[in-house]
């Protein structure tokens, strides 16, 4: 099978100006990937599928990845002019200082596709596309017209990550119900707080149950709520209808 460099060269030869970048993968798996420009993605995908040598006729896996905005602290060398008194004479001197600067790296959403060839038995070739940001410019071209197997997987990405695939024949939520507003696989998704009760005293869940109770107490709506982990037994109000 061709290496990613060879595949990129083949794409550039067939579609000049496609602007394919190689994203190297430091893991031992050695599965490097190709980043496509959204504007050229469909043409490149068609080329990958129909090229006789590559024949990547089988799109196995399509998935989303969320890269939230990252605050990066980096040290920058800054040259400043300071007034100094040297040997009794006041003069301007240049001085280099290290300064810690905080910078927000804008995040993005990414769609990753794994391609294989059934006709030739090779793979995987990994291609990926990035959105501009995570909020309003989240459009990517759909690869469903090229590979049908992306149909449900792109719907799933739309549902869980909120990437809008233009050109998708039937872009609806796949897993969550219609009317649901969030994109739960995003890393900043806030889960509904329904951890009122946790009988097993361990783990993340218990922490959440305690947090829930603290919130209820702060809001003054603690009636009927039992002490989670506190041993305070509030009376059980109301007999269950099924009792």
């Amino acid at each position: 099978m061709k290496t990613v460099e060879e595949i990129r060269a083949a794409i550039e030869a067939a579609l000049p100006g496609a602007g394919v970048e190689i994203v190297s993968n430091p893991s031992v798996s050695g599965q490097h990937s190709l980043r496509l420009r959204p504007s050229h993605a469909v043409a490149v995908a068609k080329f990958l599928r129909d090229d006789a040598e590559l024949a990547l006729d089988f799109l196995s896996n399509a998935t989303g990845v969320d890269w939230p905005d990252k605050e990066v602290t980096e040290k920058v060398k800054v040259t400043r002019t300071v007034r100094k008194t040297v040997d009794g004479v006041e003069q301007d001197a240049e001085e280099t200082v290290e300064e810690a600067r905080k910078r927000v790296e804008p995040g993005c959403l990414e769609a990753v596709y794994h391609l294989f060839s059934v006709a030739r038995g090779h793979g995987p070739v990994v291609i990926r596309m990035k959105t501009v940001n995570r909020t309003d410019q989240v459009e990517l071209p759909s690869l469903t017209p090229v590979w049908r197997s992306a149909e449900f997987q792109e719907r799933e990405i739309f549902d869980l990550y909120g990437i809008v695939f233009s050109g998708h024949p039937d872009l609806r939520r796949l897993l969550m119900w219609e009317g649901f507003k969030d994109h739960p696989m995003r890393r900043d998704y806030v889960e509904p707080d329904d951890f009122e009760y946790e009988p097993t005293a361990h783990d993340e869940v218990l922490k959440r149950a305690v947090a829930h109770q603290a919130k209820q107490e702060a809001a003054g709506t603690v009636a009927g709520a039992a002490g989670v982990g506190s041993g305070v037994a509030a009376g059980r109000e109301g007999k269950g209808a099924g009792a």
């Binding site: 430091p26 893991s27 031992v28 798996s29 599965q31 896996n61 990845v65 794994h114 990994v126």
Partner: peptide, 24 residues
């Protein structure tokens, strides 16, 4: 703690191609 990177591994499960895609 695996080193940073990603991998896609797959097998022939009774239902078809079962794959896992991991980013570390």
């Amino acid at each position: 703690r695996p080193k940073p990177g990603e991998a896609y591994g797959r097998i022939e499960s009774p239902k078809g191609e079962l794959g896992f895609y991991l980013i570390s």
